[in-house]
Write a protein that binds this DNA or RNA. Structure first.
Lengths: 109, 109
DNA sequence: CCGTATCCGGCATGATACTG
DNA sequence: CAGTATCATGCCGGATACGG
């Protein structure tokens, strides 16, 4: 754990969401709980390793909850934590901005 | 130019702002026009090469304006473009989120 | 189904020197 | 002051195999 001094406050935000796939993952989770395999299907280009890693970091940073069901076959559900919910508006706006830029009607709830 | 198909719309947004320093740069520019050296001073860890590169990409993506004054010594000012202004609210929120997470009073206008 | 472990290559980034 | 040019390097992330 480094003790970073941020020259610009937004760096504290980036520390949490700046991973290659993190914002995409969060945008999927804001739609509701999702299983590991659901996330994979929604992001065909991501590897299991990366997905696992990014989720672990998001969990460590307190924005994502991981719920394990003791079943066979295994079942794990990911969702926004309470802290993660405070990102929802930002995620919605980022999503809407991308939609608008692509010429679509914003459809990000 | 690849013709990317985005599985999640927010990827179009990330295409523009996902560089290592881009959000930090944009957050500085939302305070007003800034010269190259001002940006450097605000981000002691960035190299000239990176700063130049990230600014060039932001300009290419249409969110930053570059204004050159024909003076000696040279003077260049960067600012949010009209399109960049549409990011302002997102930037403000990201900034405020970081402030809050650090336990500061949000101070991102 | 939901991961981890290991290896490895390429590209992003850094360091440094140079220029109009 | 505001950048390029060039070279070196490290770590990010892909591929693959294995495990509970």
């Amino acid at each position: 754990m480094k003790a970073p001094h941020y020259n610009v406050p937004v760096e504290a935000t980036l520390e949490v969401i700046a991973g290659k796939w993190k914002v995409v993952i969060l945008c999927l989770l804001k739609e509701g709980e999702k299983r590991f395999s659901e996330l994979q299907r929604a992001m065909p280009a991501i590897t299991k390793k990366m997905l696992s890693q990014q989720l672990k970091e998001l969990e460590k940073d307190g924005v994502v909850n991981r719920k394990v069901y003791n079943e066979v076959p295994p079942k794990v559900e990911y969702s926004l934590s309470e802290e993660g919910e405070t990102l929802r508006e930002i995620l919605n706006m980022m999503c809407a901005w991308g939609d608008r830029r692509m010429g679509n009607t914003p459809n990000c709830s």
